[in-house]
């Protein structure tokens, strides 16, 4: 497994190299630059601008610029954010924990809801409960997440006043105390539910159908012929089989969660990577945009690797080597 992972990681290098070229080209093709966005309107002396451009390396040949960027990147130097006037890596490290927290919570919500509903519906297919769950899920699939987010803010924050509508933590509380963590949890719940509900519907239906399929397989008849109880057949024999595809989704979830966070974080003004990304695009803070895009690309590759490794762990028929 270790050897397999190492080989896969080595295999990612050429992929990342290609991605870096695309990311860099896109950033360069976009109109304007960070300097243009940040320049002091009172000091538009062309000599000064030219001096700054020279200093920032904007006048170097494009290939040189690319290699400067890549060299810095592999050494962990992602450049400076022109807007925030700080290292991009520090900026990302500051926002990343919020996004990871939001992602974890929403994953938890997705899997808990999908497991409960999917197992129930799969065990009692074509009953009222199953139809109810099915209906709920189709509703969930039909509503776009930004609509759900706005509705949730309006209803649960403004009308009922149950949850805060923005931020990641109350500014009044002391960092590290229990209140601090409770406040963070309080802030993350609403966006996490909106983000988590996104994939719940498809997971629930997937699990339900897989359980129904498996309950018709021959091995279920064998287990019953041994005198195994019905509940054990569902909870052990069938579930252990149906959980395999679900677990492998986990790897891809890492990607879709971060993608979904871009929208959710913006609507909830939740200070995470997604929000940072959107803000950086609109202020043309390209060093941040490029760093985050590269990070997403790495995550996609790593997510795939995690999916494959999980597959090897949960399914004894798959051997990784």
């Amino acid at each position: 497994m270790l050897k397999y992972s190492l080989r896969r990681i080595l295999g990612m290098i050429p992929m990342l190299f290609l991605i870096s070229i695309v990311v860099f080209s896109l950033a360069k093709l976009m109109p304007g630059d960070a300097l243009g966005g940040e320049i002091d309107p009172l000091n538009t002396d062309p000599e000064y601008i030219e001096e700054m451009r020279e200093k920032l390396g904007y006048n170097d040949p494009i290939v040189v610029q690319y290699f400067d960027w890549v060299t810095g990147f592999v050494q962990g130097d992602f450049g400076q954010s022109v807007k925030y006037k700080m290292d991009v890596s520090d900026l990302i490290l500051e926002k990343l924990p919020n996004t990871i927290f939001l992602g974890m919570m929403s994953l938890l919500i997705t899997y808990v809801l999908a497991l409960i509903m999917g197992i129930y519906a799969g065990r009692k297919p074509y009953t009222v409960g199953d139809h109810l769950i099915g209906g709920l899920n189709y509703l969930g699939l039909a509503i776009p997440s930004f609509v759900a987010a706005i509705f949730a803010i309006y209803f649960f924050s403004f009308q009922l006043n149950w949850f805060p509508s923005n931020g990641s933590v109350d500014i009044m509380v002391q960092e590290g105390t229990l209140d601090y963590w409770l406040s963070r949890l309080h802030h993350v719940i609403l966006p996490a539910i909106v983000l988590g509900a996104l994939s719940t519907a498809s997971y629930t239906q997937f699990l339900r159908n897989d359980i129904i399929d498996n309950s018709r397989r021959d091995f279920v008849r064998t287990a019953r012929a041994k005198g195994t109880s019905r509940s054990k057949i569902y909870n052990v024999h069938i579930l252990r089989n149906s959980i395999i595809p679900l677990v492998t989704f986990l790897g891809f979830d890492i990607v879709s969660i971060i993608g979904g966070a871009v929208i959710t974080e913006t609507i909830f003004t939740y200070p995470g990577i997604g929000q940072l990304f959107v803000n950086s695009v609109s202020s043309r803070d390209y060093s941040v945009v490029m760093a985050i895009t590269m990070m997403f690309s790495c995550l996609v590759l790593v997510g795939n690797l995690i999916a494959d490794i999980l597959y090897g762990i949960v399914d004894p028929r798959i051997r990784l080597d």
């Binding site: 091995f219 109880s229 089989n241």
Partner: peptide, 26 residues
């Protein structure tokens, strides 16, 4: 429940398809 006490203990059964009769993940 009453049948479960008989299946496997009083009456054993084997099937035609050995390839699919066993649970692949145990």
């Amino acid at each position: 429940r009453e049948m479960n006490k008989i299946r496997g203990k009083e009456i054993g059964m084997i099937f035609q398809e050995p390839m699919t009769a066993l649970n692949p993940v145990f």
